[in-house]
Simulated scan of single mutants.
Amino acid sequence: MAINPLAQFSRLRLLVVCEPDEDGQSLLRHLQRSRAQVRHQWPAPDRIGENADVLFCEYGPGLGNRLAWMPGEAEAALIVLLPQNVRLDYHELHVACPNAVLSRPYQPHLIDAAMLLAFDQFAFFRRQKTRIARMEENARAMRDIEKAKQLIMRRNRINETEAFRVLRDMAMKKRVTVASLASKLVDTSDSLV
């Protein structure tokens, strides 16, 4: 017995913005079998993709500008539904930045493949974005710690090792991290200048 790959998506909110023709109805029925929360909107609203984890959206002019997020800041996996026998504006498609595309007529195995690909790619993008944010936060903390050590070294006329020990001891007494204490010290010294 074949296992439905979409079963793992039962907790997701799917938004389908497509014409309710035969292909659109077929897509909706297939997605509803996943037991996910499936909403259908037609005609397409001015802002597309709010309150969704995965967005299935008809290709059309201005799609990238109608999405509910800024380019590169996607809040949902995007699957663009391509029309049959229509010339595509590839720049327009590029601006929308889809995670997958699906062309008519929609076939169940291709819907599943597009959904898996889009959601996996979107999840990877989110993990990378979180990792980058943590790295930036760590770099900012290291800069603040270095500046705080310099302040302590100048104020107490001690070397770098002793300055870090003073900073660490102060953080332990106040029960805060060295990074947060260093940030406060730097902010305070900047405001005095």
Results as ranks from 00 to 15, higher is better:
Ser10Lys: 13
Arg13Phe: 07
Leu14Lys: 09
Val17Phe: 07
Val17Trp: 03
Cys18Phe: 01
Cys18Pro: 00
Pro20Cys: 02
Pro20Arg: 09
Glu22Met: 08
Asp23Lys: 06
Gln32Trp: 03
Gln32Thr: 05
Arg35Gln: 12
Ala36Ser: 13
Gln37Ser: 10
Gln37His: 07
Gln41Tyr: 08
Asn51Tyr: 13
Ala52Val: 12
Asp53Trp: 02
Val54Lys: 00
Leu55Ile: 15
Phe56Asp: 02
Cys57Glu: 05
Asn65Gln: 15
Leu67Pro: 03
Ala68Asn: 02
Ala68His: 05
Pro71Trp: 05
Glu73Gly: 00
Leu78Tyr: 02
Ile79Leu: 02
Val80Tyr: 00
Pro83Gly: 06
Glu92Lys: 05
Pro98Trp: 06
Val101Arg: 06
Ser103Arg: 09
Gln107Phe: 01
Pro108Phe: 04
Leu110Lys: 15
Ala113Pro: 01
Leu116Ile: 14
Asp120Gln: 15
Ala123Val: 09
Phe124Pro: 00
Arg126Thr: 05
Ala133Ser: 11
Glu137Tyr: 10
Glu137Arg: 15
Met142Gly: 01
Met142Cys: 05
Arg143Met: 01
Arg143Asp: 05
Ile145Phe: 07
Glu146Met: 03
Leu151Arg: 06
Ile152Trp: 05
Met153Pro: 05
Met153Val: 00
Arg155Tyr: 10
Asn156Glu: 02
Glu162Ser: 14
Ala163Ile: 03
Val166Met: 11
Arg168Glu: 12
Lys174Ser: 13
Arg175Lys: 14
Thr177Asp: 02
Leu181Ile: 09
Val186Glu: 02
Ser189Phe: 11
Val193Gly: 14
